[in-house]
Design a protein around this nucleic acid. Structure first.
Length: 426
RNA sequence: GGAGAGAUGGCAGAGUGGUCAAAUGCGCCGGUCUCGAAAACCGGAUCCGCAAGGAUGCGUGGGUUCGACUCCCACUCUCUCCGCCA
């Protein structure tokens, strides 16, 4: 969320920035917020004045303890003030809660070059890489290829877990691990520290890192526990610093998260029942950076470079898009998506996503750092896909399929594949 | 799951209704001093307010009271032991 102090000091700029989303309810929320905040501060002053008065009276009571008449008078007066305080506080607390909930719903400030658009169709392509191979056969669906090479179990996982799950086996299970190792090796070269976080997180921590809407349509809740299965390792990796003030010298923090991701995907059309695209569980390596505010833009670009390097290493044709206002969500200030090419559909599909969340998560999570002069400031947080294994497997299967129905393993993964260079149809 | 202990500033740790924003020790940061450092001394939370100033802050939420770190209730978390599972 945005800090109320920031909003007070930059009212016009914030409003102007919000208006770029061309979503009227945000502006209404914002204008109401400004009013509420004014009233809140007025009440705060009233309440504090009353408390000051009561504090005076109670101190006098202590002094005249031995004089029953005087004491009784003061006690009576103080009781009256106490009642006034209770009333003022009631309204004050209502407003406080209202302000907080509005702040939770208002989106982040967008960077200048975020394009306006209704939905993902209006994301702006900023780069395209790779040569699209001409196949002299009809490309297959990745799920079919996976079956052809005996690398997946679909029907049996439906029996035990329902649709939207899959089980990798044999060479594809190894390929999945190879992707993880490849991504980690590359990120470690850039200073990222690998980390396996808990796969469950409590409500408070979760509210700090995600849009509230996600609780209903994305996160699995553990029954009778205050715990949710993580939708990405970004969440625990970032939220772990909740309520901390980090020494400026400890920044930036670079972490490479390794974990499975659990997602309900409620209401999303096209749950891929016989493939790896929109599924309830998949493995992923994630880049997370916690840095000082003036460095976040640079880190955003640097993470993009890492991600592109991975794509290029795997030799998958891709494009980078600058995600538009209608598709960016409330947390990110700027977001790139990397889309891989699908020879079967002859179009690009979402593979990775890189967000600069600026101070938005840090404000919710209360993560600060100390400047050289001792002052405190919110950190900036960024997250980016390292490799989203299931989706990347789809890209590899589709782009590297052979006429014979098998696949060629990308060269860069050979060292991780026990001597295999291809996986033939069985 | 059962039993017990605990939660106070960056850390350790006193404080058991008003004299407590909180002793003491250690650490870190800033300042004074110094050519520089050490030592010594001063300062160090949050919020509202232009300021003067005021309010808040002893795990969280409620209660009792004129007044709560202190008394009562509930909750959360941590630690130790036992049990169970791996």
């Amino acid at each position: 969320m945005l800090s109320i102090h920031f909003i007070r000091e930059n009212k016009e700029q914030v409003r102007e920035n919000l208006s770029r989303r061309q979503h009227a309810p945000y502006l209404q929320l914002f204008d109401q917020l400004i009013q509420d905040d004014l009233e809140y501060r007025k009440l705060l002053q009233d309440a504090e004045g009353l408390r000051a008065k009561r504090n005076q009276l109670t101190q006098q009571v202590a002094k005249v303890k031995d004089n029953p008449i005087e004491k009784q008078q003061l006690v009576q007066e103080s009781k009256g003030v106490g009642a006034q305080i209770v009333q003022t506080e009631k309204r004050q607390n209502e407003l406080k809660e209202k302000i907080r909930s509005t702040l939770m719903r208002l989106p982040n400030i967008l960077e200048e070059d975020v394009p306006f658009g209704k939905d993902d169709a209006e994301n702006v392509e900023v780069k395209k890489w790779g040569e699209i191979k001409k196949l002299d056969f009809k490309p297959l669906h990745h799920g079919q290829i996976a079956r052809n090479i005996d690398g997946v179990e679909f029907e049996r996982t439906v029996k035990i877990s329902g649709t939207g799950f899959f089980a990798l086996k044999g060479s594809l299970a190894l390929l999945d691990m190879a992707l993880t190792r490849y991504a980690l090796d590359m990120l470690m070269q850039d200073g990222f520290v690998p980390m396996q976080p808990p796969y469950m997180m409590n409500r408070k921590a979760y509210e700090g890192v995600t849009d509230l809407a996600e609780f209903d349509n994305q996160l699995y809740k553990i029954e009778n526990e205050n715990l949710y299965l993580i939708a990405t390792s970004e969440h625990p990796l970032t939220a772990q610093f909740m309520d901390e003030t980090l020494p400026g010298s400890k920044l930036p923090i670079q972490l490479a998260g390794i974990s499975p991701c659990f997602r309900k995907e409620v209401g999303k059309h096209g749950l891929d029942e016989r493939g790896f695209f929109r599924v309830h569980q998949f493995n992923k390596v994630e880049q997370v950076v916690i840095c000082q505010p003036n460095e976040s833009k640079t880190w955003h670009e640097r993470m993009l470079q890492n991600t592109e390097k991975m794509m290029q290493g795997l030799e998958i044709p891709y494009r980078v898009v600058n995600v538009c206002t209608g598709d960016i969500g409330i947390v990110a200030a700027k977001k790139y998506d990397i889309e891989g090419y699908s020879p079967r559909e002859k179009k690009y599909f979402e593979l990775m996503s890189l967000s600069n969340c600026t101070a938005y998560q840090a404000t919710r999570l209360n993560i600060k750092f100390t400047n050289a002069d001792g002052s405190k400031e919110y950190v900036h947080t960024l997250n980016a896909t390292g490799i989203s294994n299931a989706r990347m497997l789809r890209a590899i299967l589709e782009n590297n399929q052979t006429k014979e129905g098998g696949i060629l393993i990308p060269k860069i993964l050979h060292p991780y594949m026990y001597g295999m260079t291809e996986i033939p149809k069985t």
